[in-house]
């Protein structure tokens, strides 16, 4: 445990002055800004007749859908590539692997750091969402949004979204570390995100496709959401174990 804590602490320091650190709050902020812009330009013809709870739900679900379908898969893709790129870029592996530290700790620290980034960004989105609601109360009262914000819904869906991204984190950590090329890591992520965008509405495939699992948590179908979360957690543990095994047996030739 001490070894992992040390590796994680080293990983955190490496992020200083990097885009990865900025992306943690920039990614949810982009979603928030886009939502504000979208609502600002939307025309309403008088009050929409929604209860505050319903109005909040519509609003929060809209934000979380963009996050889960588009931004989260791209965020994981980019962050995994950036984390691995720190070592690929300057042949850092040969230094890290020559240290008297178990090899698995480097891999585990990267995977954990990526998971922590997903947690931080999603929770930031959870906190930022009511702020936009607050802006809307004044700029677009017709939507019917009013205090209090649905904190319970936001927190629950944030946690579900985080859990449903486990497989994505496991997969992208492995791809980004296994192949030196930044293009490979990004290519896999972009292709997966585009496919996930098309697949996420499929009742059959949606809960099984890694890039559309998080989207299931905002589908409104609890069964699909639970299936996606369970598959993602099991898949995340499996890909993590396979990635660790693959990394530990590799040589630096």
């Amino acid at each position: 445990m001490i070894i992992l804590r040390r590796a994680l602490s080293a990983e955190a320091l490496k992020l200083r002055h990097t885009l990865g650190l900025w992306l943690i709050w920039l990614a949810p902020l982009v979603i928030i800004v886009l939502t504000v812009v979208q609502f600002s330009f939307q025309k309403t013809h008088g009050p929409m007749g929604l209860t505050p709870v319903k109005a909040w739900m519509n609003f929060c679900r809209g934000i979380f859908t963009i996050w889960c379908v588009l931004m989260l898969p791209l965020f994981v893709t980019l962050q995994a590539a950036l984390l691995a790129g720190l070592e690929h870029g300057n042949q850092q592996w040969k230094h890290l692997l020559a240290l008297p530290v178990p090899h698995w700790s480097h891999y585990a620290a990267k995977a954990l750091m990526l998971a922590l980034m997903v947690v931080a960004s999603t929770l930031l989105l959870c906190v930022m969402t009511p702020l936009v609601g607050w802006i809307l109360m004044y700029t677009k009262p017709d939507y019917g949004v009013a205090w209090p914000a649905p904190w319970g819904w936001l927190l629950m869906h944030s946690l579900e979204c985080i859990a449903a991204s486990s497989l994505l984190v496991g997969l992208h950590t492995w791809v980004a570390i296994r192949w030196n090329s930044f293009t490979t890591a990004i290519g896999v992520g972009v292709a997966g995100t585009v496919a996930g965008f098309l697949i996420c509405q499929s009742e059959k495939l949606g809960p099984w496709f890694p890039w559309s699992m998080a989207a299931q948590t905002v589908s409104g179908n609890e069964q699909r959401a639970m299936l996606a979360i369970v598959v993602s957690l099991i898949g995340g543990a499996l890909t993590g174990a396979i990635g660790l095994w693959d990394y530990a047996r590799r040589e630096y030739a």
Binding site: R6, L13, K14, R16, H17, N90, Q91, H95
Partner: peptide
């Protein structure tokens, strides 16, 4: 050890580079 070119994080200071390895060790 130093194998061929030194493995450094160019975006960090020298002290931070050393700190990364210090934390690992």
């Amino acid at each position: 050890s130093m194998v061929e070119t030194p493995s450094l994080y160019p975006h960090l200071s020298a002290r931070d580079n050393l700190e990364v390895t210090r934390r690992l060790l």
